[in-house]
Design a protein around this nucleic acid. Structure first.
Length: 563
DNA sequence: CACGGGTGCACAT
DNA sequence: TGCACCCGTG
């Protein structure tokens, strides 16, 4: 997506480069792009959540590129998407639906024995789930690769980092695929980087200063550039029919003032221009200028650039569309990868314990395994549907106490609770980390270090295994312990109906932690109440994380710990 | 020039 | 899928 046709339009300004140009520098990485690409090699395995290491191929892909950067003495700073901002609502549900259809068709093909056809469809069903992101985060942690989870758009966070000096954690360039970064004002962006480190770079100063090159931007400034981008159509606002990048550029060049451009368009296009276009336009521009980002030094969330009074007034003080401000403790937990920004649940990993060989992790069959998949999917879908017409909710977690129905649907989830000793894993090579996490053999040494898992219940059967990612929590080391999460609403009986070989100890541990969780939830609720003022803004938004996570979100109780 | 439709590609082996 | 690229149409 991004800005329609912008990259093509700026083609004359792109220069082939190699990343070694940034040796010794800090470079930002838009995690989503590589996650998505990496997932191609294992789309079927991810979708089926099948056993084995293949489905972790995307981690290898990513880390391979990290290695490449390190090899060239670059310090990578990986940035993940957080919650979607309200303006972006809409697209996601549709995407989710399509993915689901693709997946269903893929399953068909598979049953027919047409593996090739199935893979093709699985590739169309790829979605980057929070658990995939989190597994990558775990890997980055063990490899000491710097990362940050943006409160909302990774692009905005990257732009913000670009504006900081390196001594304050800033970056000098960004590796991405997304043309939005230009609108956000990033000075230097590398597109289409391949596995050898070759890519195409656009340097915004060159665009503004070049006297020779074709589409001239010589009388442009950053603001006009953003105006042009929004006119041409962006993720937050579609363009007026008949207006593309070329006309947008022409209009802005000619009038050099957006209000004039808008009034000209109004007279020229009349009907074609939506009534609230001017306002929507200002909001879209504001997202690029004042997006909500995480300030690591202050450990809080703020706007990339403060909103001037005049703008605030013209928007009637309504700035929720930028994404609600999140309380510092939560923002930090999100940024550090301990809290899923879209659900506010503690993170889960999509390791398939069923087949992973983790001895301790057992599958618990719960009540009616029959339609676990359908239940899950159906509830997700309902959720999505329900949100379609009103503004979607950004943080469903906060609605838990209101949304009984959802709670009821949420029922079970398996989760486990591992603690990983950073020390023990970090010495291993990048490529083996995921395996190590998954393999029983490798585990055994550290069995003691890896704590027990707990589990709760999620209805599942083989079918589900193959379609819904198994999840369990990884507890991070000492510094940010977060608690588990996910309870059944009335969970006096959260204690799973275990019929497997859990030891007594495990069971009592489980019960203990279950109680613990209960407490956590209560205190969470408290926290929310305390922050009511701040959170009343949570009324619109979107249920989704990482641009593509259609999957799970749905309906679980969450909570997060005392941070 | 905008826009819709069609194609091919990513990853990897 | 998401994206780039090409082509024909209005």
């Amino acid at each position: 997506m991004g800005i329609k046709d912008l990259l093509r339009f700026l083609k004359p300004y792109t220069e082939p480069i190699h990343v070694r140009k940034y040796a010794g520098k800090r470079v930002g990485i838009d995690a989503y792009a590589w996650l998505h690409r990496g997932a191609y090699s294992c789309s079927m395995e991810l979708s089926l959540n099948s056993e084995g290491e293949k489905k972790l191929q995307y981690i290898n892909y990513f880390m391979h590129r990290i290695k490449l950067l390190k090899h060239h003495k670059i310090t990578p700073v990986v940035v993940f998407d957080g919650g979607n901002i309200p303006c972006k609502a809409g697209t996601e549900n549709e995407r989710y639906r399509r993915r689901k259809v693709n997946k269903e068709m893929a399953m068909e093909k598979l049953k027919e024995g047409n593996v090739g056809g199935a893979i093709e469809l699985f590739q169309r069903a790829i979605s980057i789930t929070p658990s995939m992101a989190h597994l990558l985060i775990q890997t980055l942690k063990t490899e000491n690769v710097e990362f940050i989870v943006a409160p909302y758009e990774a692009d905005a966070q990257l732009a913000y980092l670009s504006s900081l000096g390196e001594e304050h954690g800033g970056i000098v360039a960004i590796i991405s695929e997304d043309s939005d970064l230009l609108a956000y004002g990033c000075p230097s962006i590398i597109f289409k980087m391949d596995r050898f480190g070759n890519g195409e770079e656009i340097i915004i100063d060159k665009v503004f200063n070049s006297t020779e090159i074709k589409p001239s931007f010589r009388n442009f400034n950053t603001n006009l550039f953003i105006d042009m981008c929004v006119l041409a159509g962006c993720d937050f606002l579609p363009s007026i029919p008949g207006i593309g990048i070329v006309k947008a550029h022409a209009l802005v060049s000619k009038y050099r003032n957006i209000d004039r451009v808008l009034s000209v368009l109004k007279t020229d296009k009349g009907k074609q221009v939506p009534d609230d276009y001017a306002r929507s336009f200002k909001e879209a521009v504001a997202v690029f200028q004042h997006a909500t980002i995480y300030n690591r030094e202050k450990k809080n969330v703020e706007h990339m650039k403060e909103l001037p009074e005049t703008l605030l007034e013209s928007l009637g003080g309504e700035i929720d569309f930028l994404g609600p401000i999140i309380p510092p403790s939560i923002a930090t937990a999100i940024a550090e990868g301990n809290l899923d920004p879209s659900t506010m649940e503690a993170y889960e990993c999509s390791l398939s314990q069923k087949n992973s060989g983790l001895a301790e992790i057992e599958q618990y069959e719960v009540s009616d395994p029959a339609d676990a998949v359908e239940t899950r999917s159906a509830s997700s879908q309902q959720t999505n549907k329900g949100n379609k017409h009103r503004a979607a909710k950004p943080y469903p977690a906060f609605e838990v106490h209101r949304d009984k129905e959802k709670q009821e649907q949420s029922c079970f989830t398996v989760y486990s609770y591992l603690s990983i000793k950073e020390r023990s894993i970090s010495s291993t090579s990048t490529m083996t980390v995921p395996r190590q996490v998954l393999k029983e053999r490798n585990f055994s040494d550290e069995a003691a270090a890896l704590s027990k898992l707990v589990l709760a219940s999620e209805a599942h059967n083989d079918e589900e295994i193959s379609s819904v990612s198994e999840e369990f929590l990884v507890k991070t080391p000492d510094n940010n312990p977060f608690r588990k999460r996910k309870l059944h609403s009335e969970n006096t009986e959260t204690t799973p109906t275990t019929k497997s070989s859990v030891t007594e100890d495990d069971q009592s541990e489980l019960r203990r932690q279950t109680l613990d969780s209960q407490e956590s939830v209560n205190s969470t609720t408290q926290t929310l109440d305390d922050n009511k003022e701040q959170f009343k803004v949570l009324k619109k938004g979107k249920i989704s994380n990482c641009k593509a996570s259609g999957n799970k979100k749905s309906s679980i109780l969450n909570f997060f710990a005392r941070i």
